[in-house]
Write a protein that binds this DNA or RNA. Structure first.
Lengths: 228, 228
DNA sequence: CACAAAAGAGAGCAGTGCTCTTGACAATGG
DNA sequence: CCATTGTCAAGAGCACTGCTCTCTTTTGTG
């Protein structure tokens, strides 16, 4: 939570206690999220667990949605950290390994924190509109993926239609990559997220008994195709 | 005429009214689902809309989850119908067109019924366990996709690990296709669902302004790769 | 027609997010 | 040193939710 830096510069005892309590509420919420899922996350239950009145929670989070926002940002940052760490652990020019590492990091995040994964990559919570603060953490994963792609300098044709259909992405890459190659990167992103989501949300039931084997095979094939 | 009066007889007036009311409740629920999303679907609101007591709904659906199950089955059958129709509209040996038609049918379903799409392909509702009745409608889409793949008789290597990782799927295809080729089909399924989900759940915001162009391009490229 | 089965209505329980008011406390200015 | 000010927690209460139970009405059929 970004604490208001505009208030008294003192940052005394009071501010510290407030920050600690805010963190504790978020921790309790995370615990509940992991145990029960997003929709059954209850402010009253959090208050109960913390031994305080439910109304007191509102001193720290003005609404349930604000708490959700905090959890969503945390989740995005969690997977972002993992992905960037996996990327950094590889030799910068070994695009194949970087791609593989990133893909596996995303899946591992999903396996470790299924509810967090569902929170950010599943159906959006109805009535909840993601505020601006979430987009910076949210783009970390695709940015990492696209950076690897750009670094690999892949071949690919031009396409005016594709170019303007992906205008935002093209701007981000500084037009240092052709639209067709960039589209291949988005496709790869889609395949990664699609395979993980199908697995996490139960669509592999009775069909694929060992999703890890399939995923690793698919990512190897995908990396061959997309980078180098 | 043999009169078996003991079992459910003739299905007279009463049974018809019951079937009609059940359908009407489901219709009202669908309307609410489309307007507000799954989590804010309220039995009391449905009862209010129909001008009956909330408790009366329970004569038709024993619980909210049962209503959800009905809606989920409907959604699966909706997309299943579309997909099978799109497939049947193509020349059976034109695998490229069949694949493209199926992929576009899934995306069109998502665009037409975003909440239904989220219901079946988004995060599962916590605490809700899909009963057996949902799996038959659920597999219609992947079955259609895999059937096209098998028909296309694609090349591909063997892999014992992959073979047993996808044992269920291999059985379904009658082992008439190699594991590597089948995996390619699952990857294609993943890419289709991944791209649609990323689009539907807002992850293309500010990056891809015209998802239709990207999707069509991706599917063309994908079809080239997977069939024929 | 009589009667059992089916359907509807209403009250009630435990839970939810959220608001408003009230009282307690700590930090600070005169 | 006391009074003011801002912060915090608590409690009651509102409008909801899913669901159960009981009671009454309706209705098809032997």
């Amino acid at each position: 939570m970004p604490e208001s830096t505009v208030t008294k510069p003192a940052q005394g005892y009071r501010a510290r206690v407030r920050a600690e309590l805010t963190a504790e509420i978020k921790a309790a919420a995370t615990r509940q999220l992991e145990a029960e899922g997003a929709t059954s996350l209850s402010l009253r239950a959090i208050a109960r667990e913390m031994g305080m009145a439910s109304s007191a929670i509102y001193r720290y989070f003005p609404s349930r949605d604000e708490l959700f926002t905090a959890l969503i940002i945390d989740a995005y940052n969690d997977v972002g950290d993992r992905v960037e760490a996996a990327d950094a652990a590889c030799a910068p020019t070994n695009y194949h390994d970087r791609f593989l590492g990133v893909a596996k990091a995303i899946r591992q995040f999903a396996l470790d924190s299924p509810h967090q994964y569902a929170l950010i990559y599943g159906s959006p919570i109805p009535g909840y509109k993601a505020p601006q603060d979430t987009i910076d953490p949210a783009v970390r994963v695709p940015v990492c993926l696209m950076t690897i792609l750009v670094d690999a300098k892949p071949k690919g044709g031009k396409s005016k239609k594709l170019d303007q259909a992906m205008a935002g992405l093209m701007d981000f890459t500084g037009h240092s990559i052709t639209p067709v190659a960039l589209a291949r990167g988005v496709q790869a992103w889609g395949e990664i997220m699609g395979l993980i989501s199908l697995e996490m949300f139960g669509h592999f039931e009775n069909a694929i008994s060992d999703p890890a084997v399939l995923f690793d095979h698919a990512m190897g094939e995908l990396a061959d195709r997309v980078v180098q």
